[in-house]
């Protein structure tokens, strides 16, 4: 076959292919396809964008919201109740753990009045110290925070006398020594 014949054949073939009739699809094809499709679920980014961009209508039916409101109310009240309980607990613990009860005794045969003074009451006789007298024996009770305290007895409002039973003393610079007590939470009041 010559080159010319080949080209003619090629052209004839192309012409025949170009004339190949097209068949129209039936009218029911497209509706059939569309009916089989289900909407795609958009990604989270698209859903978020839509939520932010599109307006929303909110309806309020009180009875429907009642359970939710009740839950909210409970959530609001419960923390307050528990915080009140928590606030109370430290106070009680403070009383039991922070305070130490000290007892002192002092014997003086002639004294009309004896007071306990010290760093716990700024060296001033006051109602913080409970005093009782049994014959010549003066007994003092005072509640203090745990710690180190200096103290002495004030006899008849004039004479300052150190505690003869104290294990520790310190010179106060005025010529008389101060007694020293170490108060601890477990009730021991002297060293």
């Amino acid at each position: 076959m010559t080159h010319r014949n080949e080209k003619e054949n090629h052209n004839r073939m192309a012409e025949r292919l170009r004339g190949l009739p097209e068949v129209s699809p039936p009218a029911s094809l497209r509706p059939g396809i569309m009916a089989s499709l289900t909407p795609k679920k958009p990604g989270w980014a698209t859903r978020m964008r839509r939520f932010l961009v599109q307006p929303h209508t909110v309806t309020f039916v009180p009875i429907k919201w009642a359970p939710a409101l009740a839950v909210l109310l409970l959530l609001a009240v419960i923390p307050r109740l528990t915080s009140v309980d928590n606030a109370r607990k430290p106070v009680a613990e403070t009383v039991t753990t922070r305070q130490a009860s000290l007892t002192f005794t002092f014997e003086h045969p002639h004294a009309r009045q004896v007071a306990l003074i010290g760093t716990f009451n700024r060296w001033m006789p006051d109602g913080q110290v409970k005093t009782e007298k049994r014959g010549n024996l003066w007994i003092f009770h005072v509640d203090v925070d745990p710690g180190r305290y200096e103290y002495a007895f004030l006899v008849d409002g004039q004479e300052i006398v150190p505690d003869p039973q104290a294990a520790f003393r310190r010179n106060n610079g005025f010529g008389t020594p101060n007694s020293i007590v170490y108060a601890t939470a477990n009730g021991q009041n002297q060293i």
Partner: peptide
């Protein structure tokens, strides 16, 4: 892809 199925028609 946004979920508008009829857009495919």
């Amino acid at each position: 892809l946004d979920g508008e199925v009829n857009a495919f028609e």
